[in-house]
Structures are given as structure tokens and as C-alpha cells.
């Protein structure tokens, strides 16, 4: 089948040499386990996702997702709670979550939006926060808020089944089922598409009544499985 491979360097490489801070390198051990090599630096990972480690590691629970008091309050208020631990040490640490598939991606100063439950691990130098998603989250059954990751470094996200990475360009907008959406990165506008007509009310709906439409320039990560959504069977 025709398939263009982006050289791995573009997607998941550690930040360029000359970077002062020691940087953790993320790699995949199989498709469901993430291995992170750390040399004295720190990564943030979902609480309790460590499955094994080699070397010396210290695990520290970070209240409120490591975003300080303000982050803690915001997360409590928005329901986008994230149990995060900081992993620091020398060696290799392995992370996994419910045998879900892991995708490693690199941020170069751009922003990634991901559900808190799908965020497995991020470089210690990245900033995380919460943002309002509008109707998209409401229909996706994932809440009205989502987690953002900004900065430069590597991030690992989880998905039910290997995620498909879809590129959005101004020429090719993309529509995604809210239940299959995992994350997106880049400069994307999202709008909410609804195909609800009077037929839906008569019980003859199209079955795909709600979609998120992405326009702009960026990447969208989609999982080959659907969460139960409010609009799922309409």
C-alpha cells in the first residue's frame, strides 16, 4: 500500500544538540511500553504508570499536576484532574497504562492538546495546563476541558489501539468522531459539526451526528476505537 513515511527525526527525536539541560530520551519498547532514559533530569508521568526501572530512580507525587496552587485549583474546578508523579534519577524507566498503545511525539515550541487520561509521560521541561474545549469535549464525553502541553521536548500519549496520525492542511480539513479523538498538535481550529436533523428525532439519524472539524495546519491523533459518547448512537 502506498504510504509515505516521515523520517523518524521529524516526529520523535530528542531536541537538538547544544541544548543545555540534560534531556530524557523517550523510546518505545514494543508498542505498549514506553522506555525513558534519564540522566539526572526529570520527567512527569501518570501516577502509578511505572512498570519497571533500571538504575536509581526517585518517584515524587506532584499534587495538582505540578502546576502549583493555581493549577491545582483549576484542575479541581474543571474536572480535568491529573495524578502526576515526577520521576528523577539515572537509568531507564519503563511506563505503561492498561496495555494501551503508546505514541511518542516531539514538540518544538508548539502546543499539544490531549485528554488528561491519555497523557502518559512528558518531558520535565514542558509546561502543562488546562484549556476550554467548548462543545467538542461535551459531546466526546470527556468533559469541557482538556490538558495542554507546551514547550520543546518529547511527550508520550496512550490510545486504545495504535493511533493513526492524520495531517491537516488548509487544503484538507479533517472531520473526526469525538469518540475516536485522542489529541491534536499544531495550529488548528476546531469546530463542532452536527448533522442533527428532524430525522434524528424520528430515530432515523445518520449515526454520525457529531463530528469535530479541524482546520488549519497540524496533526490529529485518532484511535481505532470509540469511547462511549453522548452523541454516539444518535
Amino acid at each position: 500500500m502506498p504510504r509515505v513515511r516521515i523520517p523518524p527525526a521529524e516526529l520523535s527525536s530528542p531536541p537538538p544538540a547544544g541544548y543545555r539541560r540534560p534531556v530524557a530520551t523517550f523510546r518505545l519498547q514494543g508498542s505498549k511500553v514506553l522506555a525513558v532514559d534519564v540522566t539526572g533530569d526529570a520527567v512527569r508521568a501518570k501516577n502509578g504508570s511505572m512498570v519497571a526501572y533500571e538504575g536509581r530512580m526517585a518517584f515524587k507525587k506532584m499534587s495538582g499536576g505540578g502546576e502549583g496552587l493555581r493549577g491545582m485549583v483549576t484542575r479541581r474546578l474543571t474536572g480535568e484532574q491529573m495524578e502526576v508523579m515526577e520521576v528523577r534519577g539515572q537509568g531507564t524507566c519503563y511506563f505503561a497504562d492498561r496495555a494501551s498503545d503508546v505514541t511518542v511525539l516531539a514538540l518544538h515550541g508548539d502546543k499539544l492538546c490531549v485528554e488528561a487520561s491519555n497523557l502518559l509521560c512528558s518531558d520535565g521541561g514542558l509546561r502543562t495546563g488546562t484549556t476550554f474545549t467548548g462543545l467538542r469535549g461535551g459531546a466526546g464525553g470527556t468533559g469541557l476541558f482538556t490538558t495542554t502541553v507546551e514547550g520543546s521536548g518529547q511527550v508520550a500519549i496512550t490510545s486504545d489501539g495504535p493511533a493513526v496520525v492524520l495531517r491537516v492542511t488548509p487544503r484538507y480539513p479533517l472531520s473526526v468522531d469525538p469518540g475516536a479523538y485522542v489529541a491534536h498538535q499544531g495550529d488548528l481550529r476546531q469546530s463542532f459539526q452536527s448533522g442533527v436533523t428532524f430525522r434524528t428525532l424520528l430515530g432515523e439519524g445518520g449515526g454520525e451526528a457529531f463530528q469535530i472539524r479541524f482546520e488549519g495546519d497540524g496533526l490529529v491523533y485518532v484511535q481505532p476505537s470509540e469511547r462511549n459518547t453522548v452523541g454516539g448512537d444518535v
Binding site: 516521515i6 516526529l11 520523535s12 505514541t103 492542511t169
Partner: peptide
Amino acid sequence: MNASAVHDPSTLPSDDNVNPYTF
């Protein structure tokens, strides 16, 4: 396998599997 292939409409297969779980 790392999901390192980024797909767009011109690289998606036509009536074929993208990966074993997606068609």
C-alpha cells in the same frame, strides 16, 4: 512499531488497511 507515519489524503491507502486496526 512507532506510529511514525503521518497520513494525509494523498498518502492514505485506497480501500485498504492503514494499519491492522484501521481501514
